[in-house]
Design a binder for these strands. Structure first.
Length: 423
RNA sequence: GGAGAGAUGGCAGAGCUGGUUUAAUGCACUGGUCUUGAAAACCAGCGUACGUUAACGCGUACCGGGGGUUCGAAUCCCUCUCUCUCCGCCA
């Protein structure tokens, strides 16, 4: 959520940014600013009234102590008169505050100047192309879902039997590969200073609200009605919320955390082509990295995260490219996002495996994550990224590394799997 | 799931027979005095949000959340949430 004060002071900049997101109606900004003016005027009047009332109440207290009941009664009547007006103003205040918040919730983050304009994923800019030739497989190469049955690695049918469509069941070397990747990713992340976190997998409403899943993306989360809890769509949600409502010292920053969790997504309405196998599922495993940064340092941190994720993909020997998302494709809360896509030689298409974003203070404003500097409290910047999402990495590994002798496991992963080939 | 106790500023902890409490006190923290330096001692400062002001300030709200009684609520009432203790069940 943007701050109303920021919008007021930087209206032109905000409008320029929102245009990149293909938004052309800015009436909402003016409305919010106007309501905020009204709010201020209301508060001034209310506070004056309250100050008077407080003053008189104090006098009544003193008169009572001196036993001057009659004089006290006179004052009592005087205060009583203003009460209705106070009530009305209080009511108006909370109404205005709610209206303003509802408007601000509809305004997405202002994209970073480097975000290219565009409307769809077609307009994303290739930030770093794969330098070598893309791997080419023989014509009889299999997609990962067929490799899975050939080597008995996972079963979508059994997952469907037990839970429903989109809940894969991994088994044998397929299950071991999952566990190996999770450990490998966590070790890579902790090696460069991310603290490992194991958060709850269910979150309450306040948590989902603070990271922006609510009220907007309600339909994307699984909801446990009986206990009023949500299954987490990404580890970003619980991990970021560790620092909800906190005021840090500058030296506490940066905060670097990593967490493995399963991720649950209803993916309502996303059916059709390209959803076969592990390409799009309701439950998948992901290792996430989250950072809280000083505003001056957040873009350097973003670059560092991008290089870190690239390094992991290098170790996995997967061909990948990095995209700078355009204004039309960038997330609601993000100021700048880089997507990582690996090339699946069997499907002959790119698969998104990581999304690394700087939210600047858009998220911390909701979170109320601040730090104190020069006696002022300021909002910190938050960033996060996948390092990495499992299902599609597995798809790419299986497909690209298939040979007549079986599926080769990259060297870096072998200490974790305990085997070098799936056959 | 049952019974009881509780929730106060970074922490500990008073206040809880409603009215100079502007939330005491201690610890921690920050600045200063002293010291070669440090410790100790002493002095001062030390919450958040919003409004107002050129600024110093001033005002308002906040004692788990929400609502109520009252001229006035940390204090009384209602309600929700959470924590602790005991019992039950249990990986």
């Amino acid at each position: 959520m943007l701050q109303i004060g920021f919008i007021k002071a930087n209206k032109e900049k905000v409008i320029e940014g929102l245009k990149k997101r293909n938004i052309n109606d800015f009436a909402i900004l003016d409305e919010a600013i106007q309501l905020d003016e009204e709010r201020k005027a209301t508060q001034t009047e209310l506070n004056t009234l309250q100050a008077e009332s407080n003053q008189i109440s104090k006098e009544i207290g003193m008169l009572f102590k001196q036993g001057k009941r009659d004089e006290a009664d006179v004052l009592k009547a005087k205060v009583g008169a203003g009460k209705e007006r106070t009530k009305a103003l209080e009511h108006k205040m909370s109404e205005l505050e709610e209206k303003i918040e509802n408007l601000l919730l509809q305004v997405p983050n202002v994209p970073h100047p480097s975000v290219p304009s565009g409307t769809t994923e077609e307009d994303n800019e290739v930030h770093r192309a794969w330098p070598g030739a893309l791997p080419v497989l023989p014509d009889d190469a299999l997609p990962h879902w067929e490799l899975a049955s050939k080597y008995n690695l996972f079963s979508l049918e059994l997952g469907t039997k037990i839970a429903g469509a989109g809940f894969p069941l991994y088994r044998g070397k397929g299950a071991k590969l999952q566990r190996a990747l999770i450990s490998f990713f966590l070790d890579e992340n902790t090696a460069v200073g991310y603290e490992e976190i194991q958060p709850p997998h269910l979150v309450n409403e306040a948590t989902a609200r603070a990271t922006g899943q609510l009220p907007d993306k309600e339909g994307q989360m699984y909801y446990v009605t009986k206990d009023d809890l949500y299954l987490l769509p990404t580890a970003e949600v619980p991990v970021t919320n560790i620092y909800r409502d906190e005021i840090l010292k500058p030296e506490d920053l940066p905060i670097k955390m990593t967490a493995y969790t399963p991720c649950f997504r209803r993916e309502a309405g996303s059916y059709g082509a390209h959803v076969r196998g592990l390409n799009r599922v309701h439950q998948f495993d992901k290792v996430e990295i989250v950072r809280m940064e000083h505003p001056d340092n957040s873009y350097a941190a973003l670059d560092e995260m991008v290089e870190h994720v690239a390094g992991i993909l290098d170790k996995l020997e997967l061909p990948y490219r990095i995209l700078r998302l355009c204004g039309g494709d960038i997330g609601f809360t993000s100021a700048l996002t880089f997507d990582f896509e690996i090339y699946s030689a069997a499907q002959k298409r790119w698969l998104e495996v990581s999304s690394v974003s700087n939210f600047e203070n858009f998220q911390s404003n909701r979170l109320k994550l601040r730090f104190k500097e020069d006696k002022k409290t300021k909002l910190a910047h938050t960033l996060n990224g996948s390092a990495l999402a499992l299902a599609r990495i597995v798809a790419g590994l299986l497909e690209n590394n298939q040979t007549a002798e079986g599926i080769k496991i990259p060297k870096a992963l072998q200490p974790y799997t305990g085997f070098a080939v799936i056959d």
